[in-house]
Structures are given as structure tokens and as C-alpha cells.
Design a protein around this nucleic acid. Structure first.
Lengths: 174, 174
DNA sequence: TATTGTTATACTCTATAACTATA
DNA sequence: TATAGTTATAGAGTATAACAATA
């Protein structure tokens, strides 16, 4: 997706400004959240590009690190994506030597997923990049403001029932 | 794009928690911004879907409304997308009867873009949807908190030099 | 027969490059 | 020759459906 999208209009009670500037009018928080969020995602992708992984890869690496041995089906459900998507992503991570598939002894249909040593090193480098990213993104804010922003965002995320750690992307609508 | 991506790790100085729960660890503001932003964009797309337009369409409609008669080239530059992309988008909007191309009398290479009456009606409906969207997205916050959040987001957007009203999507990395 | 994972395929989004009309 | 717009084409990302192995 691309391009401007949402913005509340001048509320009817307010006097219109004279200029031809409705295109530069007030921006709502919803639009700013989408705009800044897309910007943040893009910049983060840039920061980890040299490590050979994408933001989607990082999501999987973190989940596998957090609970080694999980099946692809489990990841598929937690992320809300179809199983074939997980196959594609894990294929890439395995080819890069960051993740290992191991047939489960108990149920040979399953693949238990584990990070390799290099996968762990990469994840560490990603985490350092994330910290630098966070700092650069919030350069305009002092520590107190950052804390305040974090608190407000956590409230919104909780109320909207967003799964911790799962970036929804643009899911199927419905 | 999809899937979790960025999250600062437990800082090295802090004691690790014992559980196997790094996947549900602390979330940074950068991740929350990307997560909430993608969620907001998706929900907004849902809200305007019945009007037959996408968020990208809305961006163009707003720009044309704000400055009627602009050329496709001008929109292309302001949005930071290639001219052929504008062709595709305007094709769709013209087919839906929301936008009209008029050959410029001064320079017959140019198309001057204008909203039709239905385009204006649709944009009005979009604006009402955006207001409802904003309210639903920020349901967790009281009016004072909303104002505070807006102020913080505006600071971040300005410092990051985000063009007002232009949603960057995932631009070419560079 | 149901489930895990895979492959084959198709669709959407967006970019690049070649092309037409106009200047 | 340069510019506005268009068309043709290609690539990335992600979904659906058919399939194989295992239970």
C-alpha cells in the first residue's frame, strides 16, 4: 500500500481557511499513526537489510527463539498467516543457515524449528539494530515524553486487542 | 509486509527473567507504532471499502480536491511514486467516475485532474468514515490523552521529515 | 479420515523500460 | 531533444487449492 489515506476533515463548526490548502489541513492521530508506523517499518527494514533478513524473518526468528521446537502450524496460527506462507519464510531462513527443521520423533508429520548458532548471532545483531532504530525514531522526544508515548500506545494496542509482538501487516479484510 | 519485526531486547544489564518468555517481552515504541499503524491502515481500508475506494485512492482524491487541475506528473512527484503508478490509480478513479482527466489547453501533453460531483460526494463520505475510524482507534484514551498523543506524534513526524498527508508505504529502500 | 507440511498456481501491488504525442 | 503520459512487462509478496506423508 502507498499514499496518503485518512484524515479527519475540518470540523463543520470551524471557519474554513481561505487558501486552497485542504491538502495540508489538520492531520488526525490515526493518520499519523499509520504514516509514522509505515515509516518506522521501512527504516527498520533498511537497518537490518545488511544482515540478510527482512522484518518478516525477524518475527519468525523471535518466535522460534522464544519457544524452540514449535511446529510450523503453531507459527502459522499465531501469526495469522496460511501454512504455505510459513513454508516460504522458513525455506529462506533455512537456506541462509539461521533456522533448522528437525522432524519430530513423536509425530513425524511435524517439523520442530530451532535457531542455529548463526541464527542466534543474527538475532542479537537485529536487537542492537532495533535499539538504535528506536532511538533514532524518537529523536524528537525527551525521555519523559518517550515514556508517555509508550504508555499511550500500550493502552491503544491493548484496547484494540493487538497480539503482543505480532505485526498485522495488511491482513485479509473481513 | 507482515509479521512481527522489531523489539528492543532485555538490556544486558538487567537480570533475565527465568521463564521461556522472550517472545512476550517488552515492546518498544517503534514496534508499537508500526503495529498500531498497520492495524489502523487495515481498519481504515475496511471502513471505506463499501465506497469502492482504497486508501491509496483516497490519497489521490484528497490531493486533487486540494488543488484541482494538477498534472499527473505533479502528483507523482509529491507522492514519490513513478508516473506509471499514477496512471494506474487515476485509471481506476476515472472508471469509477470519481475523477476526470482534461487535456490542458496550454500544453496538450498534460492532463488536468478534477473531481467529479460524485468524487466530491465520495470524499465527503470518506471523511466521515475517517472521523469514526479515529474515534474507534483511540477508544482507550480520554480527550486529554488523545491531545497528548497527537502532540507527541506531530513532533516525531516533523523531526522525521514526513510529508504532511503523504503515507510512505514501503518505499524503495535507499 | 484428519492433520502437517509442501508444491503449483494465481492474484495484487508496484517498479522498469519502451513507446506515443506534444513541445 | 525533452517532457507528459501510456503500455508492456517483470518481480515481490501472499493467498488458494491440490497433493504427499503420517497419524
Amino acid at each position: 500500500m502507498l499514499v496518503a489515506y485518512d484524515r479527519p476533515v475540518n470540523s463543520p463548526g470551524q471557519p474554513h481557511t481561505t487558501g486552497p490548502a485542504p491538502a495540508t489541513g489538520p492531520r488526525g492521530a490515526a493518520f499519523l499513526l499509520a504514516q509514522i508506523g509505515a515509516h518506522a517499518a521501512g527504516r527498520f527494514a533498511e537497518r537490518i537489510g545488511h544482515l540478510g533478513v527482512t522484518p518478516a524473518d525477524v518475527g519468525l526468528l523471535r518466535m522460534i527463539a522464544g519457544q524452540p521446537g514449535r511446529s510450523q502450524r503453531a507459527l502459522s496460527e499465531e501469526l495469522g498467516v496460511v501454512p504455505s506462507r510459513v513454508v516460504t519464510l522458513i525455506d529462506g531462513l533455512e537456506r541462509k543457515g539461521l533456522v533448522e527443521r528437525r522432524r519430530s520423533a513423536e509425530d513425524r508429520r511435524n517439523h520442530e524449528l530451532h535457531l542455529t548458532a548463526e541464527g542466534k548471532r543474527t538475532l542479537g545483531a537485529v536487537s542492537r539494530a532495533a535499539a538504535a532504530h528506536e532511538d533514532a525514531l524518537l529523536a524528537a522526544l525527551d525521555p519523559e515524553q518517550r515514556t508517555r508515548l509508550l504508555g499511550l500506545l500500550e493502552r491503544v494496542a491493548a484496547e484494540q486487542e493487538l497480539t503482543p509482538g505480532v505485526h498485522p501487516g495488511y491482513r485479509a479484510r473481513g
